[in-house]
Design a binder for these strands. Structure first.
Lengths: 197, 197
DNA sequence: AGTAAAAGTCAACAAGCGTTGACAAGGGAG
DNA sequence: CTCCCTTGTCAACGCTTGTTGACTTTTACT
């Protein structure tokens, strides 16, 4: 009997510890606060209150506010495999729309990157390791510049829609946003980069 | 003789007082700090140090940090008169480039608007009272939406170039930026808003 | 049972912030 | 010279922040 219990304990130890739930609760609260308020306005005390625990626990689990942010800002863009052609723009825009809206992490990253150098590093890293490589196959030439141009449009749209909430941009339906943005994205991926006329 | 002196004094009182210089120094330092650090990170103490005065003076001149920001974030886009046509995009992009680079106010506004609701209000107001009206003449229809789309591209480019400093975007020359962006701006102003194919 | 580690609580700290009020120069006006 | 208004200085306040260490409770195992 003791052996069975011991075995079960080991299994539990390796798979699901009591603390993992609070760890996850802290991370969820942190993403929400960082996403809503930005790095400096999001206080450890508020995050702890959202997770219904003591502020000291946040430090015990993550060591520091900076490390907590680093853990909360881990993000995978999950870009689908894209094939060159006029459908790429639409697929990209649609993917970004749902990725922004079902996960607070991107909002946390953007809101923080504007004032926090560490978060800005994270953003540049995300661009260099996830967006740029995925777009490299789609660009007819100069993939780094074209990825940069796509980033300006993607981040600018997110900024105006989710952060600044400019009324005409926030009001767009997904379909309207795709119809308006996809051609511009395709343009950045394929049209000549120097003035043609 | 007394009358002459009194008159000169009154004139001086109305045109140039001793305090106006420090007022201007505070405003310049405030714009630089707000632009470099954002609203919450920019401290009154740091602004005062930059202006080489006592922190208490900042409060005496502007009353409150919020009011100081409101004064420092006063901004005129100075959009030129634009005529419809394919030249509008290039003129717009070029104007924005110089307006961003010779004045810290826009950086202060953007860096602060992402985390400060009051600054976000300012940004929406700037969009509604300056950008949207100026673009209304250029749009073939639905001017509010088209102005919103132009704003996403303009702010996104500024965000990536001046705030996040994504290498490929920060490296672009003015001419390269105009060549890349102007067609997209023209597209947003004139192309049909719903999918055409 | 008893025990040791894990998980959680509490009060406090040092530092930084915006803001205030009391007070000291400075320089024209009578 | 004397007065007064402007301009500037100084020290302190109350508050919030991230972070710490000592303590108690819970949990899991022999």
């Amino acid at each position: 009997m003791e052996k069975v219990n011991a075995c079960w304990h080991m299994l539990r130890t390796m798979t699901e510890r009591k603390s993992d739930r609070t760890r996850a609760a802290i991370l969820a609260a942190a993403r929400e606060r960082f996403g809503g308020d930005g790095y400096e306005r999001a206080t450890i005390r508020a995050i702890a209150a959202d997770a219904a625990i003591d502020p000291a626990m946040v430090i015990r689990y993550f060591g520091t506010k900076e490390k907590l942010f680093a853990a909360a800002a881990e993000f995978d863009l999950r870009l689908p495999a894209l094939s060159p052609g006029p459908g790429a723009g639409e697929a990209l825009v649609r993917h970004f729309l749902v990725r922004w809206e079902d996960d607070d992490t991107l909002k946390a990253l953007l809101r923080s990157a504007v004032t926090n150098p560490q978060a800005a590093d994270r953003m540049r890293e995300l661009f260099a390791t996830q967006l740029a490589p995925a777009l490299a196959r789609l660009a007819v030439d100069d993939p780094a510049t074209r990825a940069g141009l796509v980033a300006t449009q993607a981040l600018g749209f997110a900024l105006c829609r989710y952060i600044l909430e400019l009324p005409p941009v926030a009001a767009l339906s997904h379909d309207a946003a795709v119809a308006a943005l996809a051609p511009a994205i395709n343009h950045y991926l394929t049209e000549p980069l120097t003035a043609s006329e």
